[in-house]
Structures are given as C-alpha cells and as structure tokens.
C-alpha cells in the first residue's frame, strides 16, 4: 500500500540530495580518471619500476570494499595526530572531501585497467602505419592510439560511472546527506522504508538512465561508421551522407 501523497513529499525531499550525489560523482570520477590515466600509462610503460607500483595499487583498491576505504580515509586517518596538525587536515576534516578522495582512489583502480585494456586493443598495424607515415611516438599516441582506445573503453567506462553513482550512497555512512543519507533520515522520522527507498531507488535509476543515454550518444558520435548506416532501400532519395 503505497501512500501517494507521502511518496511525492518524500520524493521532493530526496531530490534535495541529488546535487550532493552528483557532485560526489563528478568530482570523484573526474579526479579518479586522471589518476587512472597515469596508472594505465605506468602499467603499459614496460618499466617494472612503474608497472609494479601501479599493479599493487590496483590490487589493493580493487580488492577491498569501498566502504572500508571510506572508513579508512574518514575515521582511520583522523586517528593520527600528525595528520590532524598537517595542512591536509582542513580537507580531511570534512566528510565531503574524505568521500571524494576515497571514491576517486577506488574508481582510479578500476578505470586504470579499463584504460589499459583500451590502449592494448589498438591494432599493432595501426601504430606501425602511423610510424611509417612519419608520425612521432607522442603524435601517434595522441592521434591514433588514444582516440581508438577511448572509443573502445567507453562502454565499460559508462558502467564504471554508473557504479560510482551508486557508490556515493556509501557517503551517507560518514554523515553526508546525499540521496541515501536523506532517505535514512526520512525513514528514521517516518518509519516507512517502502516509500522512501522506492523514491531513492527511482532517483538513482533516473540519474543512471541519463548517464547511460549520454554515454551511448557519445559512443555514437565517436563511431562514424555506426552513425552513417546505409539508408533503407525503399526511400532512395533520403540516402544518408557518408562520413569519414
């Protein structure tokens, strides 16, 4: 028995948490992506001094739960007086930055492997051809490898972004009132978990639906061969222009 007026009321309160949920996602995904890119380059560098530290990082952050990572950053680091007196404390003091840091460190580990997979997927022949045409290594990397790698990893990466949106729910465990935090608060006031959790679920579903559509659109935009599908035979006058 869903109480509709209560549900709508709940929904409007929960929507108040969306900006925080999105901020946590955007900040952690974007900073995580930069770290991931560096880690992926370390992994493909062929230099063991770069490769092994990156391997260890990925091993550690993929092998432990995000919740544990959030707790270590939030409650663990604050146990050290040295850190509390350091210039990092104004950041680490805030639950907000602790959540961003933990989520970014986590997504970096996963994304690094996605990026590495993308880089490795580019055919050797492509690189050889670029070199044969006189491109320098950095130029070939930028013009030939990177765009193709990016396109290859995009479907998997959109998965990772969606996972991150859901992971931000864990920020509620360290006092942040994003969508899940607000939901927990509402339940503690109303004791009606059904309406509140359905409302929270609907919000996450909407956000993730939009992200999935956005990534799919980006994927299409980056794949000219898919965009320019031959026009159906029955209407020859609307033949799509060929790209590329």
């Amino acid at each position: 028995m869903l109480d509709l007026p209560f549900f709508l009321d709940t929904l409007s309160t929960l929507i108040g948490g969306v900006p925080l949920t999105l901020q946590l996602t955007v900040l952690s995904v974007s900073s995580g992506a930069m770290l991931a890119f560096a880690l992926a380059l370390m992994r493909v560098s062929g230099n063991p001094l770069l490769d092994y530290p990156a391997r260890f990082y990925i091993f550690a952050f993929r092998g432990t739960p995000v919740l544990v990572q959030i707790y270590i950053v939030y409650y663990g680091l604050s146990q050290f007086p040295v850190l509390r007196q350091s210039m990092l404390w104004p950041f680490l003091r805030e639950a907000y930055w602790c959540a961003v840091i933990a989520l970014a460190l986590n997504t970096a580990a996963y994304s690094a492997e996605l990026i590495r997979g993308g880089l490795n997927s580019v055919a050797v022949g492509q690189i050889e051809a670029a070199r044969a045409l006189g491109m320098s290594r950095p130029l070939a990397f930028r013009r030939i490898i990177l765009p193709q790698a990016f396109r290859q990893m995009l479907p998997a990466y959109s998965n990772e972004i969606i996972l991150m949106v859901k992971s931000t729910a864990l920020a509620s465990t360290i006092t942040l009132l994003e969508v899940t935090g607000l939901a927990a608060k509402l339940i503690s006031q109303s004791y009606r978990p059904v309406e509140v959790f359905i409302g929270a679920g609907a919000i996450y579903l909407t956000i993730n639906f939009l992200i999935a559509r956005l990534c799919a659109a980006l994927q299409t935009a980056l794949s000219p061969e898919k965009r320019a599908a031959p026009a159906p035979a029955q209407s020859p006058e609307t033949e799509a222009p060929r790209h590329g």
């Binding site: 409650y75 604050s78 146990q79 509390r84 003091r93 639950a95």
Partner: peptide, 11 residues
C-alpha cells in the same frame, strides 16, 4: 561510537 571518534579527532 562513531561520533565519539569524531569528537576525539576534533571534527
């Protein structure tokens, strides 16, 4: 217990 941690850490 969690808020006691944060009292001690100065948060």
């Amino acid at each position: 217990e969690e808020h006691n941690f944060d009292l001690m850490s100065g948060r």
